[in-house]
Design a binder for these strands. Sequence first.
DNA 1: CTAATGCTATTTGTTTGACAAAAGTGGCCT
DNA 2: AGGCCACTTTTGTCAAACAAATAGCATTAG
Lengths: 244, 244
Amino acid sequence: MFETQKIYKTYEQIALRIREAIASGELKVGERLPPEAELARQFGVSRPTVREALKVLEALNVLESSTGPAGGTYVKELDYLGVADYLKDSLRLLLSVEVVTLEDLISAREAIEIPAVGQAALKRNQDDLHALLKTLEEGEAKDFDALISDLPFHRAIAVASKNQIFSLFMSSIHMTVQTLTRRYVMPEAKETSQAQHWKIYEAILNGNKEEAEVQMKEHLHFAYHEVYQQAIPRRESFKGTGLS
Amino acid sequence: MFETQKIYKTYEQIALRIREAIASGELKVGERLPPEAELARQFGVSRPTVREALKVLEALNVLESSTGPAGGTYVKELDYLGVADYLKDSLRLLLSVEVVTLEDLISAREAIEIPAVGQAALKRNQDDLHALLKTLEEGEAKDFDALISDLPFHRAIAVASKNQIFSLFMSSIHMTVQTLTRRYVMPEAKETSQAQHWKIYEAILNGNKEEAEVQMKEHLHFAYHEVYQQAIPRRESFKGTGLS
DNA sequence: CTAATGCTATTTGTTTGACAAAAGTGGCCT
DNA sequence: AGGCCACTTTTGTCAAACAAATAGCATTAG
């Protein structure tokens, strides 16, 4: 058995070294990297090579750049939002080639959100309850879109669960589902959905894990049958992009 | 309220257009893009700019390049493995800045794997059972590492669940946990773990969803207490990378 | 004295052109 | 026929310059 060692290209090595510098704490979040020209000098490569490495790390949500004297390249704060965004795009692509289905998304959502709401019921604090209440009130206000008002509430639950992995998975799945469903749903569906939100909130307020999980399950099943069942796959057309 | 529209840089626009071409089916998986020089001509930009766009898409696991006449840039096949790899790296970074903890990973794993094994018990077919059996036998054979032999079994369960989102989430979490835990565990722990694997397999074989879930829960709790509890955060030292 | 305005320096963004390296392809020599 | 070598295509890297954006500073007008 021959170990075929991966040969890294120069720009990959640079990207790797910068990533290691971040992982090791040598470069901290928010810190500014030397200018590209200086980096090129330090690494002993040309600026385009450094730039390719930087672009890779920007794509991976690790760095961000801007022009100007106060600009430059900075180590981006690492939160789950950037990752969720990438995950959403990937899921959408996986969906488009049909290796995952809407049903898969729904059942993954159930797998995540039911334990999440259980944890939320146990770990919620005053801030969480306040945040949840706020999303509920705002949900009452805007009567036009049940799906849009759905996300903040569920997001707040994930936050209350104190597990950012739940937030991450939940957000990406929810965003993916949203790109697939109509922006418009029946007013009655919205009312039922909102009433269920209140029940879930009550269970969380009371710290009742089991009740919260039961209510969430019911809510998700309702959402699936009444809303997502009528989901219409968005047909996309991006002709004429200039590629042969 | 002023709508501050995002200004895209040239290379971002190029990356976007290529992505759209893929999403719309204009560029299919496995297809070869024109050479960089030709792309530059078509888009009316310079080659370095095109390259930066391509590097971004390579980083996002959408394209891959190689040199030579038969080389060039190809649209990469989209499977969950590449995404899982990215997710693993991200989780590891999130872990390093302590926005997620080992406990978060464990509880997310439970959230995913218990429903996954339930689905597997319902949907498994002959191929799945055969694959599971194979991982079990191989697990018996190699006596050196319980953690390594753990992954294939759990992966096979995710496959049997017929939901690639479970596979994706499970793999990334499992890989992340692995980078944190000792490579070495007690032989007794390994034996218990293997015995639990067999019980899970039996439940899946019998199509007994509830039993499979119960056994999995027990297995995960055991793994957590007996194995991961003694996890030692890997201290990394990447000094002298040449960054000031 | 203050506030607006424009200048300047710094840094990323983009272009041009060239050469290096890798890797199939085909022909030539044995 | 088989192996070796040169050629061709394509990505990878380098170099030097200019363009664009932007923050800070100085200058000037009110």
